[in-house]
């Protein structure tokens, strides 16, 4: 799949431009907040450089500014990052090499890069992932540096609609995913389910848990392994009497290893 690693990397860099810009603006507000909360300027920048997970950094910062302890702050940030686990599970098969190089490759996962490099058939273009993350890392870390040093001279950036960029981007990718693929009908069910789970949990669980929990909805695919041309009613799916597995050897009740 990666016959042109350099081209893929470059494509990732280019595709990530809007997110690097949005990330820079968000990083700017993170830098301002972190220093205001008592972080040394260097610490704020180092945090963005080595953690590189915006929502987790905001969450952890909010806990310590609110008087919470370090364990609570780390727990909040880690919950926020919980989605990187299912994202990494999905990415894993697309990363070659031994455990160490795969673990390193996994470090490149951030939301936009992961979504951009998704090829739509369960595989990922890892070079595109790396390219997209490289540019976003520059945006996020650079923005933090400017914010930490300038101390909010630019004021509140929400008025520019920057907070809409990431959700709009995810919505865009979701729409593409649902409108063109073979598995669109199954994808729609899973997307609706994921959205419902996330919304239902949001008022009651710490930030981050709703998105993590939504990934569990993907297990619905186990019930309809083919998905593609599935009819609206799928009563037959659980009986083992569906006309034919598309690849001819998957009676639904069989254990996964049976193939």
């Amino acid at each position: 799949m990666a016959d042109d690693p350099r081209g893929s990397f470059r494509a990732g860099v280019v595709a990530a431009i809007p997110f690097a810009l949005a990330g820079a603006l968000l990083g700017l507000s993170f830098g301002v907040l972190a220093v205001k909360a008592g972080f040394p300027v260097v610490a704020a920048i180092v945090m963005s450089a080595i953690v590189h997970a915006g929502s987790a950094q905001f969450a952890a910062l909010a806990v310590v500014t609110g008087g919470g302890g370090i364990p609570t702050a780390v727990a909040a940030g880690t919950l926020m990052n919980g989605r990187f686990l299912p994202m990494g599970l999905a990415l894993g098969p697309s990363l070659p090499g031994g455990p160490l190089s795969r673990a390193l490759g996994g470090q490149a996962v951030v939301d936009a890069s992961w979504a951009l490099s998704n090829l739509g058939d369960g595989r990922f273009d890892r070079h595109k992932l790396y390219g997209a993350t490289a540019l976003q890392w520059c945006g996020w870390t650079g923005g933090t540096a400017v914010g930490a040093i300038s101390q909010g001279a630019l004021g509140n950036l929400d008025r520019f609609g920057v907070d809409a960029v990431y959700p709009a981007f995810f919505a865009a990718l979701l729409v593409l995913e649902l409108r063109s693929r073979d598995g669109a009908s199954r994808g729609r069910v899973v997307a609706l389910g994921g959205a419902a789970v996330a919304l239902a949990l949001s008022p009651f669980t710490p930030a981050g848990v709703p998105v993590l929990a939504a990934s569990v909805v993907a297990l619905l695919a186990l019930r309809r392994p083919d998905g593609a041309a599935a009819p609206h009613h799928h009563a037959a799916a659980g009986t083992g009497r569906t006309p034919a597995g598309r690849d001819g050897h998957d009676p639904p009740p069989a254990p996964p290893e049976a193939a």
């Binding site: 989605r83 998704n118 369960g122 990718l173 995913e177 598995g183 959205a195 998105v211 619905l220 392994p225």
Partner: peptide
């Protein structure tokens, strides 16, 4: 194949959740 099919729909679940929570 069944695990792969779960992974294939993972983006739909996560993207939808990111959109609504965002």
């Amino acid at each position: 194949p069944r695990v792969a099919s779960v992974i294939a729909v993972m983006p739909a679940a996560l993207l939808a959740a990111l959109v609504v929570t965002g």
